[in-house]
Design a protein around this nucleic acid. Structure first.
Lengths: 207, 207, 207, 207
DNA sequence: AATGAATGAGCATTCATTCAT
DNA sequence: GATGAATGAATGCTCATTCAT
């Protein structure tokens, strides 16, 4: 999903064939890379344009403003994680199983699209997020809390306030990802190793 | 609103004596508030000046550049946590005890200076941090890893790579703080409640 | 007020065609006028922009910095004199003739573009000149010294160190131009009158 | 007359002894050096203060503004040359003699105080000169023109407009000084050598 | 007199956005 | 749709000047 260079004659395409890389996508990719590297606020539209191999003006044909672009990038990737979670987490399963599914989805995503995960979780977005983006975050919270609450009912999960448990577990995941990024810890299999530990944090203590 | 040197106990004053709150401190305070609210990159020097109740030019008598100001704010608060940790964590104690001390220091700090903790932990600082700031972070890592390693030797702490355990535990703390900030969870006592859970994540699983 | 590339004959245009006076040229002209009037250091980019009838930002599409603009102005005009000199001074001719040609080129230039000559010769440029600009000055010195040296070999020119003779003669020319500017002396024909006097300064004294 | 450093405790003096270097003089010296090096417009009051070893505020006790300081520096040195000229040029003497006296005064001055001469003659001063300064320049012009006119009456000096002759001769002197400064020509004895040449420029051509 | 912190207008430069081509 | 020159408000920073000490 990382791009870098595009054809120098942006816009060329074979008759009838669908565009392999539309301007819109090129911009979205370039923006993600740039925002992750230097922050939304630290990135200029010109930098995004150059990285995408398009003219500044062209960005504005697809996104009405920088704010809208920031939002679109957020939306694009957040939607992807949320939909993965919704598709792959079995809400009927025991908490231990559902937790494992959830953890696996996050691990896969953070490993396959490290920039995207870093952008979503290691930055402040208040400046440009709109209602839809916020709602998306909410959808994921709801699922996770549901898993936790049902786990608590089943005696699997400790009795602590679910929002706190979620904050602890998600924070732990993000913490590992950050350490990975800063090179303070080794490759991605660590997420797997971490799963057991985090589950021990969540599960009901043995009596 | 007077002159130059920092005074670590801001606010103390002898009756009738000139205010200890120097311009430098006012700027440091205003910058922390502004950076926390709108990001380093999203804050203008004019906003800092206005918030501090001084003229723009006055900031530059105390900090040679915006970058230096960002660094000074980071340094000021990071030093404070690190020194608290160094003072209050007993490296000779059993891991459970040392962990508890560490958790307490962080809780106290994050509760007493929520903006400072948010600035330190919820933002990207690469843009302006200098070597001294980075070294400070390192000092805290060393302590935490030491506690974990000695806990592992004593069989108290699970055998996972210490850097990962640290990332998990610190991430969990930061996660709770973030939830507190976004209003997704209630008051600070939750940190206390969370401690037991996080310890269960760290400790060696019962056989 | 259109686009980009310089056109050496500023002002030429086909009837009905878009004006050849590009933004770049307008800026170059405005900068020359302003720098001549109030010095490079005493001129703000805003003043240049206003004089050129463009927005401040537009200057920066054509010149990366004020320094680069100063240099470009210098280069533009210095290149012009130097090329005129190189084209019109016959290095094979007797010194008296070559001197006359040189004097005529300078006179024509200083009369046709008084601001340009004043900018080039009545100001301090060290602050912003680059290597190319310095090299240009050198080219002219080489020609003049060559004329003088060959004149000395032919017994036409006095035996004084050529660099000193050049400094005297060029200084005399600049002196007259300055007096003209300050209104201390009348119209440009004076340069013609001065030529004979300056030659008497240069030529070998009759025995 | 060049200064550089002053005692760090500016103002200290033995009781009763007159100040060796008053603040006023230190500032005047520092300003000359700075203005010569980096132009009036390119010099900040802070730079002058530092060079003079005094506080910025102290400059304002002696000069009401930067403009006034620039003017004072100009006045200080211009007065000096003009007075030297008035004292040492014998208006009753033959033109050749008076010219020689004049040339000698200038040479002595430019050699003894190279920064002062460069400041006076290689820069644009319109920005800050007042009437008195302008009048001073005038006094010197009057003398020189007088010498030339009387030389013309006596058949010693060529019949060219005196203002032009003056411009040529003074320009030649300034030209040599400039070459000396830029290192394009060797030591100051050259002024002496140049005198004869310049006189040949001024004198009536042999029939 | 001397000091230097404080002021705020002004400067060079950047950048989101527009629009003629 | 795409381009990139043009715009001008906003930014980080400087600097002449003031004034409490």
């Amino acid at each position: 999903m990382r791009h870098g260079e595009r054809e120098s004659s942006a816009g060329r395409r074979d008759a009838g064939a669908p565009p392999v890389t539309s301007t819109r996508e090129a911009v979205l990719d370039a923006a993600l890379a740039a925002f992750t590297e230097r922050t939304y606020g630290g990135t200029s539209m010109a930098q995004v344009a150059e990285r995408a191999g398009v003219a500044v003006g062209s960005i504005y044909r697809h996104f009405p403003s920088k704010e809208a672009l920031g939002n679109a990038v957020y939306l694009h990737w957040k939607r992807r994680v949320v939909e993965d979670v919704e598709r792959e987490v079995d809400l009927g399963a025991p908490a231990r199983v559902a937790f494992s599914q959830l953890w696996r989805v996050l691990t896969r995503f953070a490993t396959a699209y490290p920039d995207a995960f870093a952008f979503l979780e290691h930055q402040q977005h208040e400046e440009y997020l709109d209602g839809e983006s916020r709602a998306l975050s909410e959808r994921m919270t709801v699922i996770a809390v549901d898993v936790l609450v049902r786990g608590q009912r089943a005696g699997e999960v400790r009795a602590t306030e679910p929002a706190v448990l979620l904050a602890l577990a998600y924070g732990a995941f993000v913490g590992v990802d950050k350490a990975l990024r800063t090179g303070q810890a080794a490759p991605a299999e660590l997420f797997v190793e971490a799963e057991a530990a985090v589950w021990d944090m969540l599960r009901a203590p043995s009596p």
